[in-house]
Nucleic acid binder design. Structure first.
Lengths: 157, 157
DNA sequence: TCCATTTTGTTAACATGTTAATTACAAGAC
DNA sequence: GTCTTGTAATTAACATGTTAACAAAATGGA
């Protein structure tokens, strides 16, 4: 862990920021630390993190079209297409047609999907509660607020 | 429980957390917001975000073995293997043998790689400075500290 | 020395991320 | 109506994420 004395190579002004204080990598590390607690649990139920995001949104809202799902689950359309195909083949969700708009794909959860939710949700909640207890609600809320603010960096500058 | 028609689907206690206050997704959103500023720039230089992480670490440190690189760039070994192969084929980095340990792969940047660093680093720095100016150093440091703390959630509980 | 164990890196297989191109349908302008 | 334009979803192609299995080299005893 020697903070190396920076071989010549580049002027300081042109040196990339230190890896450990780089926001993109810090976000990645934090995310991985959190997910490492959820992934093994999800794995025992044979679903991925992204699949779980899709399923759980269908637990909040009866019917969701693909675009809205992509927004809420934060999954790009091409990935979502594949995930939907996979979940449908496994009988976890169903695709419906929107009578008013022939382009849209409506998604609905099946009883098999509901069974997964009923199994996974309590376990997921337990893990999250442990995390919340560890950091404290206030600190977690502060972090979430800061992250929200970063997420809006797009529209402004 | 097998009898209830579950019209509103799930009891509140078993409902997954709201998507917008879910830490994993919040981290994902924030990361994407930040990267959306860097990706187009990197793209004009024909490198990906991960390739840039590898290259820039070789700008800080003359020679790095694959394991250390995986740690610092936060890239899993299988991904790193592919990235190294690609960067080597393009003449951006070079692989050396470790005389003391035949298993290790040492990485070194080439002049072509240095040229990329000299082009990209200032642009990257500019983008980061704009971000830092937008949020303020203190707020950014606070965020980085919180993220660091989350990243250590592993070893404890 | 010999052998079991550990470590490092690679390969394989599948899932997702990412951008660009494409198809199917919808909405407006004319 | 026809044409153009815009939107929703898919497909294609490539890069990376993720886990498991594996080969090669090092290590630490017996």
């Amino acid at each position: 862990m020697t903070e190396s004395p920076t071989p010549k190579m580049l002027q300081d002004a042109f040196l990339p920021r230190n890896t450990r204080r780089s926001l993109p990598i810090a976000l990645l590390r934090a995310r991985e630390a959190v997910m490492s607690h959820f992934r093994p649990m999800l794995s025992t139920h044979d679903i991925t993190e992204q699949q779980w995001r899709v399923i759980r949104i269908l637990a909040e809202q009866e019917t969701v079209d693909a675009s809205e799902m992509a927004d809420k689950a934060f999954i790009l359309a091409p990935s979502l297409t594949r995930i939907i195909r996979s979940l449908e083949e496994r009988g976890i969700i169903a695709k419906l047609k929107d009578e008013n708009d022939g382009r849209r794909v409506l998604l609905k959860i099946t009883p098999a999907g509901m069974a997964i939710i009923n199994e996974v949700a309590p376990e997921s909640r337990m893990i999250y509660d442990r995390l919340e207890k560890h950091f404290g609600r206030e600190k977690l809320d502060l972090l979430l607020d800061l992250l929200d603010e970063v997420s809006t960096f797009n529209e402004e500058s």
